[in-house]
Amino acid sequence: MSSTTLTAEPKPARERTRSAERVSVLYDVPGPKARLRNTVLTVLVVLVALFAVYALVTKLDEKNQLDGALWTPFLRGDVWVNLILPGLLNTLSAALVAAVIAVPFGFVFGIARLSEHSWIRVPAGAVVEFFRAIPLLMMIFAVMYGGSAVFGLTVTPFTAVVTGLVLYNGSVLAEIVRSGIQSVPRGQSEAALAIGLRKGQVMRMILLPQAVTAMMPAIVAQLVVLLKDTALGFIVSFEDLLNAGARVLPSNFNNIIPAVMVIAVVYIIINLIVGALATWLERRSRRSRRTAARPVAPADSVAAPGAPGGVAAPGMPGGVTTGDD
C-alpha cells in the first residue's frame, strides 16, 4: 500500500497521535467544511457534558451533598489515619496474602494439568475448571458458612475472603501457567530431552524459566483483578477499604456519596500503579531475549485479534479482559 496525503498508514497515524489532527483510516483528513463541523460538534458535546455536570451538581446540592461538613473530613489527617488507612491496610494485606498463596497454587495446578499421568492431570483440571466457573462471592459465602457448619471452625471474614481469592485466582493463574509453558516452542523441550535431561529437569531448567518471562505480565494483570476482588469482602463484613468508605465514614459523618467517591479514587490510583507495572513488564518481556516463548495474553482475556494494520486507533492492548470478578 502506498501512502498518499489522504490515507494514513497505521504507522504514520501512530506517529501523529500527538498532533492536533489525528489521522485515522476511518475518516478523511478534515477539510475546511469538516473542520467547521467538527468545531461545532465539539462545542455541542462540551455543552451537553457541562449540562450533565450541572444537572448532577444541582441534584447533589438539592440533597445537601455539597455541604462542606461532608467533604472536610477528607482534609483531616486523623480521619485518614484512624478510619481509612486501617481499611486500606486490610485490603492490601488480604490481597498480599492471597497473592502469595495463589501464585504457588497456580504453578502447582498449572503444571499438574500438563502431567503425563491422567490420575494427576484429570483431578487438577477438574479443580481448576470448577473454581473458575463458580462466582467468587459464592465461594466466600461457602467458606464462611461451610467452615463452621462442616468443620466446626470459626471462620473470620479475612480467612473467607483470602480462601475465596486463592481458589479463584489460583485457578485462573493455573491456566496462565499452563498456557505459558505451552507457549515455549516444542523444540526447546525436545532438545532438552535429546541431551539426556529427565522430565523434571526439562520442566525446571528449560521450560519454567522461559515460561515465567513470557507470563509475568499476565500474572501481574491477574493480581490487579485479585486486588479489585478484595472489595467483595465488604459483603461479608470484612473491614476493608470499601468498608471504610461505605460503612465507617458514613456512620461518622453521614457522607456516603463523598466517601465512596474518595475511596473509588484510592482504588483507581492503586490499580493504575499495579497496571502500569504490568504494562512495563509486558514491554520488557516482549523484547526479552531470555525466552523463546511469546508473551501470554492476560487471563480471562479473549483472543487478541490484533490483526496488523487494523482499523482501530493505535495503542490497542494485546488482549481484552472480560471484567470477570
Binding site: 490487579v224 479489585k228 472489595a231 465488604f234 470499601l242 461505605a246 465512596v260 471484567g323
Partner: peptide, 13 residues
C-alpha cells in the same frame, strides 16, 4: 479500575 462491589454499592446507597 474500580471494584464492581463499589460500583454496585454506589448505585444502591
Amino acid at each position: 479500575n474500580t471494584p464492581l462491589t463499589l460500583v454496585i454499592v454506589f448505585c444502591g446507597l
